[in-house]
Design a protein around this nucleic acid. Structure first.
Length: 265
DNA sequence: TGAGTATGTTCAG
DNA sequence: TGAACCTACTCAT
């Protein structure tokens, strides 16, 4: 379930598992084989995430750049290693654990400059210490585009995907089609603070759970395993007001909202 | 066995 | 705007 929290959690895990020791890197599937040979046996110096991008720094101009796309995933298993199952693009083996990477949209060896280019293209990441919310506000407050578009625009805010977008808009009672420039500054400040908190919580849990405490108890019976308000709950009663959750396509992505809790202005 | 689905991104038309 | 792509899993036939 790769949104920003997933990548930051991976960076943290990989730091713990692999940083500071020599790792064995391979590509059982073959598509990353040439690059894997170059970093194989080197010491991983740093693991870092920006939005949905993950970087493994092995030294000057030796950075593995990973983007999971829609269904990429990393494993985290204790040694000894098993034979690879399925399509394993990259395998990293450390002293105690190994990680298999499957189905990424990107897995490539790049230079420090190319890393800079990726960083420069991305917007502020609420999970990074250097995040400056004013940069995102500048874009949003000047834009005619709807909030549904802006929140998922990786050049505005890096790391928010469809689940966080859906749930943020719900939690703040915002119409997904409200233009960015119609959002009051005070509401943005609250939204940003909540986003930081929600993403941090996602990193801790390893999953996205967005229900406020007061809505949690009834959830067990009602919302199934997914602890969210609107995402993929089309037609089910809103956990707050009972109105059926609405669904539409917005820029080729699924959009879910409660017409009562998130009324059009 | 095959269809359908997915939290993402890029490219062609 | 739609298709393509990377993969695994669920459900129907």
């Amino acid at each position: 379930m790769p949104e920003g929290h997933t990548l930051h959690r991976l960076a943290r895990t990989h730091h713990r598992r692999f940083v500071g020791t020599a790792v064995a890197v391979s590509s059982p599937q073959g598509r990353f084989a040439t690059s894997a040979e170059i970093v194989d046996g080197r010491v991983l110096e740093r693991a870092e995430a920006h939005g949905k991008h993950l970087f493994h720094h092995y030294g000057p101009d030796l950075v593995v750049h990973v983007h999971l796309g829609l269904y990429g995933a990393f494993g985290d298993v204790a040694v000894p290693v098993d034979p690879p199952r399925g399509q394993v693009r990259m395998r990293i083996v450390g002293a105690t654990h190994y990680a298999d990477l499957r189905g990424p949209i990107t897995c490539e060896l790049i230079t420090d400059h190319e890393v800079d280019v990726v960083h420069a293209r991305l917007g502020v990441d609420p999970l990074r210490a250097d995040a400056d919310p004013d940069r995102a506000w500048t874009r949003i407050s000047r834009s005619r585009a709807p909030l549904a578009t802006l929140l998922m625009d990786q050049t505005v805010i890096a790391g928010v995907g469809n689940v966080y977008r859906t749930e943020m808009l719900f939690r703040h009672g915002l119409d997904p089609l409200l233009p960015g420039r119609a959002l009051a500054r005070e509401r943005w400040d609250v939204l940003w603070a909540d986003l930081v908190e929600l993403l941090r919580d996602g990193v801790r849990r390893g999953s996205i759970e967005t229900l406020r405490k007061e809505h949690d108890p009834g959830l067990l019976a009602d919302a199934g395993t997914r602890r969210v308000y609107a995402y993929r709950r089309t037609g089910l009663p809103c956990l707050v007001c009972g109105t059926p959750i609405a669904h539409d396509k917005h820029l080729a992505r699924n959009l879910f909202w409660c017409p009562t809790c998130q009324p059009a202005a």
